[in-house]
Amino acid sequence: MDVIVCVKHVPETAEAEIKIDSSGKSIEKAGLVFDINEWDDYALEEAVRIKEKFGGTVTAITVGSEEAESTLRKCLARGADQAIRVDGKAFEGSDGYATAKILHRAIKDMHFDIILTGMQAGDDGYAVVGPVLAEMLGIPHATMIKKIELGEGVAKVNRELEGGLEEKVEVKLPALFTVQTGINEPRYVSIMGIRKAMKKEIKVLGLADIGLTENDVGEAGSWIKIEKLFIPPVEKQAEFIKGSPEEVAAKIAEIIKAKGLV
């Protein structure tokens, strides 16, 4: 089984303070820590497990600048055999659709049985790249996958539905699956893995290598164009309880008591 995994290098923002930059169209990236997109971490692990069970190769691919190489190195350290980075100045402003176009051109002549992507990217959250890429490649896809069982020419996959429900679907291979968190437990990287990964070459492709023009990518080649970012308006704000931890705890306890809950 040859598996291609699409990975994105994204900023970790859950605990960071976010500031909109002067262009108004992007956030200030300085000071943010970047890592592999959470969903892609699970996708990569699933790819490596498929390789371990059935043999074959794992290729990690990203559309991103040089900084994204740390995410590719992480993939190599965790068991990917090769890594590809597609980069170009014209890519800036690409939405999920334009990104899928770029990935399509980079992947279409490669051999694969399965392509894995994350269900969504934690930064833009489009949840489109996987299915768009599948449609461009002319292969079936299934999204939000919680389980993959491979058979002869087919895969049985569990798709997550709402409220804890799943559906089991059979999909013909080659196919693309978008992976949901919790499908597996991503492994830690071994020191040996890291050492080996440092030595591996990362293949870099540009706009011309993949046969696209500037109009196909960036804002020009996108479905949607960001006009402005803004901090979500707060309709309601919690009443903040201040003081030392002990004072705060005492106040909360009083509030809970006033409600008759203790």
């Binding site: 976010i18 956030i27 901090i231």
Partner: peptide, 10 residues
């Protein structure tokens, strides 16, 4: 975007 920390008009 960013887990609901930022809104985007597009």
């Amino acid at each position: 975007m960013y887990g609901g920390k930022v809104n985007v008009r597009a």
